[in-house]
Design a protein around this nucleic acid. Structure first.
Lengths: 190, 190
DNA sequence: GCAGGTGATGTCAGTGACTGACATGACGCT
DNA sequence: AGCGTCATGTCAGTCACTGACATCACCTGC
């Protein structure tokens, strides 16, 4: 078999990720030590840190996947910056089907309860904006417009996501995102 | 004398803040321990943590002051959300006179060299957006519009600040900010 | 002045995140 | 069977951060 697996069972990263989320949900983030997570996954603390740069990162591995999908949704043809961002947002909407909503809500509850985790989430959003900015400038958009368009796009995405995971919300991610974008445009025109 | 002073010399917070910035500039953030900072200020590590919640916070005490000024610049009369945000931005511009630019650049260089510090800066910006959102909703703006207007305002501010501290930049903060706001509006209208 | 209160600081012991160095054991290849 | 590779285990160490308690300057009431 492939050498990517763990010493005995394989899938060490996934086991650590699942164990961490479970413990965070029951004991809270601060009430859980890395040693506990590792033990729950049948591994040692040192191995945890070989898979994740730090304790927080175990909740954000998917986020890096998002960034790739976001960028791949960026159309190759150069057009108006904001039109390209809208294309990216449409692509991003496919990342959040209805089935994912419960899991996103659980994750959200853990992050909402801890400032350090919110900090990390902001960093991921920021790095997404930076990547988008780079991609836009690579397509000929001037630096200032690229940065603003990227920031606006991330703002729309983040706001939409917050609404999507809110209790009682029933609209699809795409519907929410379209409404949020329209509202932002209306606000700025006035 | 007032009991706010340190055991012997007084001004413990300021001494710690200055010692920290100096050491960070010469040795880098990671290369400086809290014990070193405290010793340079003639204090102990424990006292450092009585003045600052954590090592990073020593670079962000002013940021909390910003938040107060931002909010105080918010006009009392209710109007269009974005018009109120523009009022806040005009008030914020007074916080960055020309004399402050060199100091801001030094600080910026420390933060730019360390991801953990960028994370904290993002958190401060986010908490500013949250505070603005609350202030807008308290003035009758609906939640979604308030959040978007606040986010847009913070984006304009942050982008403007980045340009203002860039090497070679000569325009005033206010000039830059007006240009950035106009460009964001133009981008979204298209 | 003198005793007591207050607030900032010092001291000390401890926890937990994170790291470097080295050992070990499973697996694939030859 | 022998060998190299790679994930993991082990161990020692640093450093951020915290709780508990002692100390010392200063202020207040008497």
């Amino acid at each position: 078999m492939m050498g990517i697996m763990g010493r005995w069972q394989g899938g060490a990263s996934e086991r650590l990720r699942d164990a961490a989320l479970g413990l965070f949900l029951t004991q809270g983030y601060d009430g859980t030590t890395v040693a506990e997570i590792a033990a729950a996954a049948g591994l040692t603390e040192r191995t945890f840190f070989r898979h994740f740069a730090d304790k927080r990162e175990v909740l954000f591995v998917d986020q890096d996947e998002f960034e790739r999908v976001f960028l791949s949704a960026l159309p190759d043809d150069t057009g108006e910056p904001m039109a390209m961002i809208v294309g990216v947002l449409d692509g991003a909407a496919t990342l959040f089907p209805e089935e994912r909503r419960p899991w996103s809500r659980a994750r959200r509850s853990v992050i909402a309860a801890n400032v350090a985790l919110q900090e990390r989430e902001l960093l991921k959003m920021s790095s997404l904006a930076v990547a988008l900015t780079r991609a836009l400038t690579a397509r000929g958009v001037d630096a200032a417009s690229a940065a603003l368009a990227a920031e606006a796009g991330v703002t729309v995405f983040r706001t939409s996501f917050a609404l999507w995971v809110a209790e009682g919300e029933r609209r699809t991610f795409k519907e929410i995102q379209n409404a949020v974008l329209a509202r932002l445009q209306a606000l700025l025109v006035q």
